[in-house]
Design a protein around this nucleic acid. Structure first.
Length: 316
DNA sequence: AATCGTTACAACCGCCAGGTA
DNA sequence: ATACCTGGCGGTTGTAACGAT
């Protein structure tokens, strides 16, 4: 059999927390900790609240070092990056933003950031410029053959190659909209190599993941990204014009290859704004952005030198 | 000043994975 | 082996604050 029920829902208080309740909860946790049992905590602390409610109140509001107020452009950028990479996994995103909670970020995204991007999107109702795509599906611009990946700059209509751009926590990618593949068909069987696909409506978007900072207070809240969890990551996908039948450019190690849409991929998009808008937002924060988080527990940092290279897309 | 619409955010709800009896 | 609890998470809702008319 299991444990006793967590609380009698009929007798617990709901709704906004009063300053007295906040004070009781804060005092209790500062004195005794949570004891690893949120369900028992409210009774011990003299609160008529559900344990879940206490936990939420503590994590989202009362916990030390919680940051409230405006998000910086740098934070915007990190959120956009990670959202584009892993979707709405707010707790993971929050773990990269010191002092921010998943709830905070979720609210911020839903109420402000998404609209900001949508507004940018509506400003640019335009087709992408024609691209100098290689005629063969199996080739890449010759001058970039030595590059692990390359990207297209719309403003200059040019390509540039770049180094392996980023790493990503492997378990970040276990996401509905993400596909992992060790590509045996390409004889590329390094255990930690994989290809990942991130869809964006009509175009496809690949952000090199920018795992950065661990949670703000060193608590267990959020997931820490550990270096050893990281696999080298190269990924790229591209649409076949505006059709559904997308071709994907795979890029990993020194290999680049066009391929068919992966089986099992159904292409529902997590984003409904344009890649360029996201990119513009990221670019708009300027070149002096850096992750200044000095938390010594960080396992990651943002490599700003790679930021401009994050977005790659290709048409053919 | 009153009303209505919008925004921001705190809190709740329901689901799930993992743990425990 | 199984039922069920707990903690964690993402989605959604409720409401106070604010702004426009």
């Amino acid at each position: 059999m299991g444990r006793a029920p967590c609380c009698d829902k009929a007798s617990v208080k709901k709704g906004p927390w009063s300053p007295e309740e906040d004070s009781k909860l804060k005092d209790y946790i500062e004195k005794y900790g949570t004891g690893g049992n949120w369900i028992a905590l409210p009774h011990k602390a003299g609160l008529k609240r559900c344990g879940k409610s206490c936990r939420l109140r503590w994590l989202n509001y009362l916990r030390p070092n919680i940051k409230h107020g405006e998000f910086s452009e740098e934070e915007d950028m990190i959120i956009c990056n990670l959202f584009a990479t892993i979707g709405s996994r707010w707790s993971i995103i929050a773990a990269q933003l010191p002092g921010r909670t998943d709830n905070d970020i979720k609210n911020y995204w839903n109420t402000k950031l998404k609209k900001k991007l949508m507004a940018l999107s509506s400003q640019s109702q335009r087709k992408p410029p024609p691209l100098p795509i290689p005629s063969s599906h199996q080739t890449i611009p010759p001058s970039y053959k030595d590059c692990s990946s390359y990207y297209y700059t719309p403003s200059t209509r040019s390509f540039a190659g770049f180094e392996p751009l980023s790493t990503v926590q492997s378990d970040l990618l276990n996401h509905n909209n993400t596909f992992l593949a060790t590509d045996s068909s390409l004889n590329h069987t390094t255990p930690d190599s994989f290809v990942s696909y991130y869809p964006v409506k009509e175009k496809f978007l690949m952000f090199g993941s920018e795992p950065s900072c661990s949670s703000s207070d060193g608590s267990s809240y959020g997931k820490e990204i550990k270096q050893e969890d990281v696999s080298h990551f190269q990924g790229f996908c591209a649409p076949n014009g505006y059709e559904d039948n997308h071709k994907f450019m795979l890029s990993y190690g020194n290999r680049n290859q066009w391929t068919e849409k992966p089986s099992g991929y159904h292409g529902e998009t997590p984003l409904d704004y344009e890649l360029e808008d996201v990119k513009r937002l990221i670019d708009s924060s300027g070149s002096n952005n850096s992750c200044n988080n000095t938390n010594n527990n960080n396992h990651f940092f943002i490599d700003e030198s790679k930021r401009q290279e994050k977005v790659m897309y290709y048409y053919y």
